[in-house]
Design a protein around this nucleic acid. Structure first.
Lengths: 237, 237
DNA sequence: CGGTCGGTTGAGCTAGATCAAATCCAGTGG
DNA sequence: CCACTGGATTTGATCTAGCTCAACCGACCG
């Protein structure tokens, strides 16, 4: 872990970073970081490298240029919760408290831009626009965390999977065949949704059998979005 | 619902509001709200009154003076997720986006202070201290939401219950007998922890049988905190 | 005193976990 | 180019934590 936090902006090509078109998500309002941009460096990571550790002090914030990052919380006995998957264009690490409560790890090869927190904080103390932007980012995270709360607390396995697939088709860029790449493993998905790998596989297989999706190891195409949406918010009984 | 959002500061006594000593939680840094305090009103609510509805526009922020408020998300078929319980001293409703993503309801009789958002926002745009305070509140919410994510995604029923009891003893004021009052029903607890009422009861009964806690309908005393802590972070197998 | 509404307890049932065994590739070395 | 190897994925068989359904209990209330 912690292998390559050295700025190595050229490594992207070396490690075969998947071309990173911006997330199709509504781009979070670009902040006027001006002077801060000069203090930023570009960092490239390999699969499973740690961006920062759980409990580490929060010295930087990050923006993803390419690839996918997961935030992870680990229990002592190895149970794992993947809080979120971060995609190109997404910012993270700005939670404003002293220590990171989650670790952040590269799901695959990742390229990201790293900004120091200290000058950002002083900037935010002067510029209400920056402060507002930070608040908005945090609020959005909070909102999506709360949505996931319902997922984890009250939804069935297939509802979780269907919802996840919908989220991915929404956030990932469409490729030439109308499909999207799933950068994360089944295990990552399982730990994100509070399920086991096997249950994830079985639900995916089920949805595929019904003809709702076409799925290879890492590529997803939705054939019947309506059916998928119905699955995601199934009214029970 | 929506019964009594009229400012009725005298009703507290009428409805027998449980004396509201401040939460023993580290009080979130008191903001210099100065001028805003003049625009605030005190509101009193009865059990199950709605403070605001899911999807309602976010016009106010609130501080609890006494009682307990729950934030709730409801699925169409009635499945319910209680996001958090808010206690005296806690602020809520400041998520900064236009609409509330959760409803907020009084768990029992509640007294709260209501501040209009618009002037707060303009205040925050001028005063970095206010902005910083809002960001900190939101970040704390985000942090606790993320902790609950692990609970909901990966913990067993008894771990959830034990963790919840510990949280309550931490946040609630101790009464003369060393116990704390639990303002919420078993159903609320169940919907908070992603369990059923029956499972909540059975786990509580189990922990009580072991002598770790003494529990009546609405009052909890922890006899063996170490045992409870062990339960909450049990290393599986 | 009967009714209602939380809470508790018992008896199965089942969604999803666990355990185990293929299968499928992607990358490696020949 | 092809066989080989190891990890990821898939599928099958079984088990179980927690859910569901149902009965009962006790406090409070009119």
């Amino acid at each position: 872990m912690q292998a390559s936090l050295q700025p190595t902006s050229e490594r992207a090509a070396q490690i075969g970073l998947p071309i990173p078109p911006a997330s199709s998500e509504a781009p979070t309002s670009q902040p006027p970081l001006g002077t801060l941009e000069d203090l930023a460096v570009t960092v490239s990571l390999c699969k499973d490298d740690e961006v920062y550790a759980q409990g580490g002090s929060a010295r930087y914030i990050y923006r993803i240029l390419g690839g996918c990052v997961r935030t992870v919380k680990l229990m002592e006995d190895g149970r794992r919760q993947v809080n979120e998957f971060l995609l190109p264009g997404d910012w993270f690490g700005f939670e404003a408290l002293a220590e990171h409560d989650f670790a952040a790890e590269a799901v695959g090869p990742v390229l990201l831009r790293r900004y120091p927190r200290r000058p950002l904080d002083t900037l935010a103390a002067r510029d209400p626009g920056i402060a507002r932007w930070l608040l908005e980012l945090t609020s959005q995270q909070l909102r999506s965390a709360r949505d996931r709360m319902v997922t984890l607390g009250r939804k069935t396995a297939s509802e979780r999977i269907a919802g996840f697939l919908l989220e991915m088709t929404r956030r990932m860029p469409r490729d030439s065949n109308g499909g999207v790449g799933l950068p994360m493993s089944r295990g990552d998905i399982a730990d994100h949704l509070g399920l086991t790998i096997e249950t994830v596989c079985r639900c995916l297989a089920q949805i595929r059998r019904e003809g709702t999706i076409v799925l290879t190891r890492a590529n997803l195409a939705v054939r019947n979005p309506a059916a998928l949406r119905a699955l995601a918010s199934a009214t029970r009984h």
